[in-house]
């Protein structure tokens, strides 16, 4: 089956990102396809490489980035929701006159159309939020 995944909460405060990660990993291990993982609302906060959780805790951003690299996952961060919360890639940082960017490896900033497309192209769109 082909799944689209939506994550609408940031890491650590809510379980949503953990659950989405585990679901995505399990689905891939069972041979399913992940069309895209779309990060919206506070879910965009999963995409900063500047998060530093304690060493004895999981690092969700690193887990997502590693999973993306291993399975060529399409991790898309919403371009409307991300800048509002300080999540910027190099292009957006330059465009907004900011002195740096914080997007993590494997994440791509793109439009809300990518969420709608995931709904159209996936057999099931599974949303992880509050």
């Amino acid at each position: 089956m082909r799944f689209g995944i939506v994550v609408t909460e940031g890491p650590y405060t809510h379980q949503a990102s953990d659950s989405a990660y585990r679901f995505t990993k399990a689905a891939l291990e069972k041979g399913h396809e992940i069309f895209r993982v779309f990060f919206y609302n506070d879910g965009v906060n999963n995409a900063t490489r500047f998060a530093v959780p304690p060493q004895d805790d999981r690092n969700l951003q690193v887990l997502w980035s590693e999973l993306a690299e291993k399975h060529k996952l399409d991790l898309v961060v919403c371009i409307a929701a991300a800048p509002r919360r300080g999540i910027l890639d190099a292009d957006e940082a330059k465009r907004q006159g900011k002195d740096g960017n914080n997007i993590a490896p494997g994440f791509l900033i793109s439009g809300l159309g990518q969420l709608i497309e995931a709904g159209i192209q996936s057999d099931r769109l599974v949303m992880f939020g509050d």
């Binding site: 919206y40 609302n41 409307a80 929701a81 439009g111 809300l112 159309g113 969420l115 709608i116 497309e117 709904g119 159209i120």
Partner: peptide, 19 residues
Amino acid sequence: TVYALESLEVVLIGAAFEQ
């Protein structure tokens, strides 16, 4: 919370997809 506003943003963008 921001959910109402950001939901509306998806609805408006999604409207262009003729679903």
